[in-house]
Structures are given as C-alpha cells and as structure tokens.
Amino acid sequence: MKKPTISKRQAGDVLFWSVMILPVILLVATFIVVPIISSVAMSFTEYKIKNILTGAPAVWNNFENYIHLLNDNRMLPAIGRTFLFVFIVVLAQYVFGMILALILNSNVKCARFIRSVMMMPWVVPTVISALVWLWIFQSQYGLFKYLVKVFSFGMLSDFAILNDTRFALLGIALAALWKQIPLSTLLLLAGLQNVPDDMLEAAKIDGAGYFTRLFKIIIPYMRSVISVVVTMAIIQNFKQFPLIWTMTGGGPSNATTTLAILSYREAFVSQNMGTGAAVTTVWMLLMILVVAVFKKLMPSQEID
C-alpha cells in the first residue's frame, strides 16, 4: 500500500501552526500546568514557609496532610459552606441577572443610562466592596440593621447579620451578588439581543404568550450564553476569598470559613504550605467536578 505523502506546502502549514501555537503552550504550561502540578505534589509533603526561605527540601509525609484534613473538624463544614455559598449566589445571580436583562431589553426608558450605572458595582475593587458592605452591615448602627428593624415593624431590632452564625454567610452572599449581578446582566443582555426577532414575532402570531416565548424560545436560544455566565459564576464564587476575608475573616465561630479561607489559613496563617496545598487540591477537584456536572446537565448547543 502506498504511504500517504505530505506535500511541501502541507508540511509548511504544520510547521507554521506549530510555531504559532508554541507561545500559548509555553505560557499555559508555565503559568497554569506547572503551578498546578507543583501544588498537587506539595500537598503530599511536609512543606512550610521555613522550607521556602531556607531552601530545605520538601519531605514526603505519607498522606499526612490529607489525614490531617480528614481529622480537622473544619474541613467538611468548609466544603458544605462552599457549596451552599456557590449555590445561593449562582442561582440568585442568574435569576436576578436574567430579570434585569429582560427589563433592559424591553425598550425601557433610559436603558443605556441604567446599563452604565448598573455596571458600577462591578467596577469597584472587591476589597472596597467588602468595606462598603461592612459599613452597611455594621452591628450597631448599620443601614441594614435599620432597614430590618423598619420592615419587621420593630420586631427585629437587634439583627446584626455578620454577627449571627446562621446568617453571616448570607450577608456575604448579598455583597457578592451586588458585585456580580451587573456583569451577568450585561452578558445575558448581549445573549438576549441575539435572539432573532422574526422567530419571536412568528411565535407571537402563532399565539404564544410571553412566558411560552421566554421558556420555549429565548432561554433555549441563549443556552450557550447562560452556560458561560453560570460557569463563570460557579468558578468565581468557588474561589471567593477577598470578600469573605475582609468582611468576616471566616468568623464568627468559623461560620463563613469556606475552602478558600481554610486554604489561606493553613498556608499563610499556620504557615503550612503542605496542608494549604492539600485543601487547594481538594478544592480544585470539587470545582472541576461541579463545573463538569453542570456542563453535562447543560449542553451548550443552540436550538435550530
């Protein structure tokens, strides 16, 4: 059988795209793949700040870091809190983002102005947002406490959301939503504007009501945009650190200690990079799992 021959031109093409893709491969390998492998490898060793600064090599410690985490009474609750936080914020972010996008897409007056103003929370640095919300939630004279008192007709006069172990995570979720909804709205709005008007018109003529059009045409048509928005939200909130660290530091009574906080505490407060890396490894695997499950449940192909 005659071997398939590669023409000079084809060989040149292969060489060309290989060289073109090389910088990207190098960048990804250097700044993503190598650190991940290094972090996973570190999670199996005893490796402390001292090792970095004195140049002492890491020592394999027979899964001691993972055993430590299993025995640590903070690990499982931290996983639970991380999932709860991600679930609340992602769901609310999608629902409110979609509602806002639908409103802005409905020829409402001053839509452009509203869209510009709406982006402001997204522009504010996360730590500044956290400090602003700390003031709003201030336990003695915060605005939030006042509003709760007014709307509960004085029945809840002493509600300090960040001081309450049952609601502190919700307080942080509110701050996260304030910051993240604008971008979701903008992306969803862009998706909405790509839904063909003729298809909606045809459905309307056929007698489809607003909600039928929304659930049967608009949302299925936006599937790929929604997939991107939700995936981004899952990742962003899974790794949410500055908001929580600034607002509560993981307290009160560890009520807001998520995997991000636990990882930081292990690595930079306890100065144990090994256990910090072990938390990060578990955290990364869980995040990959969640995103994979979401992708499985929500394939990104659009309707015909």
Partner: peptide
C-alpha cells in the same frame, strides 16, 4: 511559637462561641 497567629484566631472562635453562639 510558629502557629501563634492561628492560635490567636482560635481564641477568637472560643470567645465568639461562648457569646454569639
């Protein structure tokens, strides 16, 4: 001690547990 900051945070958790919790 090496873990002084971590111990300090745990003391805060103790104080929060007996008051807030």
């Amino acid at each position: 001690i090496e873990t002084l900051n971590d111990l300090n945070l745990e003391l805060c958790t103790l104080a929060q547990n007996i008051t807030l919790n």
